[in-house]
Amino acid sequence: MAKNEIKPIENLNYEEAFAELEKIVAVLESGEKPLEESMSLFERGQALSKRCADLLDKAELKVKELAGEELTDFEENE
């Protein structure tokens, strides 16, 4: 978790962002952290929540094609 906290939010994928968000919620619900620290966690949580929403909003299925070792974008012909 300590490592995740320094990772910029825009580099997190959905699973990473959501997992960290869930951890933050668990910490806040336990009420164990001092108020100032809780507040920064909350702000980080808000940013993570927004990151998740953005990722879901913009998600577009990526399709690639494998030929031997070579990965290329797959052109779909309708």
């Binding site: 990722l55 690639k64 094609e65 797959f74």
Partner: peptide, 10 residues
């Protein structure tokens, strides 16, 4: 699940 990435091996 548009978050997924698909790799086709034709």
């Amino acid at each position: 699940m548009p978050l997924a990435e698909v790799v086709l091996a034709p």
